Each structure stands twice: as structure tokens, then as C-alpha cells.
Simulated scan of single mutants.
Amino acid sequence: MEKILVSSCLLGQPVRYDGKGQTLQHPQLRVWQSNKKIVSFCPEVAGGLSTPRAPAEIIQGRVITNSGEDVTEQFQTGANIALEVCKKNKVRFALLKESSPSYGRNTIYDGKHRGV
């Protein structure tokens, strides 16, 4: 059975940098959950970062927290684990948190920690 990778924070799990979730309320999620199609995943936590943690943004190809710590390695580790989880679980689709330095597809922050 094909599965769907879903950002853990979108399922309400408190894994975001601020220690909170960002629950996505949609009836289709309940259907997928009841059919055991969802694989919940947080690459930051899988990569070894704590919750809560300092916010991080991508700056010139590196992932840097607002306090100047380089967490690129943890983000890369989390991405590699995500790939393995997807392969193992035959994930075909993903529902990911936009604007995240791990998942942002259409938008990410500008790397200057200004909320832009």
C-alpha cells in the first residue's frame, strides 16, 4: 500500500522550533489516518535537534540558527533519514510544512532572521 509522508507538526505533534504543533484540520487527513496511510515525520527531530530549538534559516547554502549556530549537518541527516523512511514505507506523496528550512518548496525565509 502506498503511503503519504506528513509533517509531524501538521498532525499536531509539538516538534516545531517553538515546541508547538501546527495542526492541519482537514477531513481527508482523518480518512488517511483511519486507513493507516500516513507516515508522520519531522526531519529536524530525526536529525538530532531538540524541541524547542532556536529558529533556523538557510543562508548561502547553510542552515544557521538566529544565534549563529550552524545546524546544516543535523538538517542534512534528517533529510537523509526522511529519504530512507520514504523508501522503506513506499511513500508516494508528501504533505509538508511550507516555509520550513527542511520542507519549504514555494517559500522559505530569506536567511536574515527578520521574518521575511
Rank of each mutant, 00 (worst) to 15 (best):
I58R: 01
Q76M: 13
E57W: 06
V71K: 05
A94C: 03
L5V: 02
Q28I: 14
K88R: 14
S99C: 12
A94T: 01
L10T: 13
Q25W: 07
T65M: 01
V45Y: 08
L11T: 09
Q74A: 10
V116D: 12
K90V: 10
T72A: 01
W32F: 15
N106R: 15
P101C: 03
G61K: 09
R62T: 04
S40H: 05
N80V: 07
C9H: 07
L83M: 10
V31A: 10
E98H: 08
V31Q: 10
V85F: 04
V45G: 09
E73P: 03
P52S: 11
D18C: 08
C42I: 09
P52V: 07
G61C: 06
L29A: 02
V31D: 04
V39T: 08
Y103V: 11
S100R: 08
E44G: 06
Q22N: 15
A82P: 00
V63N: 00
V91W: 02
K20L: 07
A56I: 04
G21F: 09
R114Q: 15
A54M: 10
I64Y: 04
Y17G: 09
D70Y: 08
G61D: 04
Q76I: 13
V15K: 13
R114T: 15
Q25H: 15
T77S: 04
E98W: 11
T72V: 06
K87E: 05
V63L: 04
G111W: 08
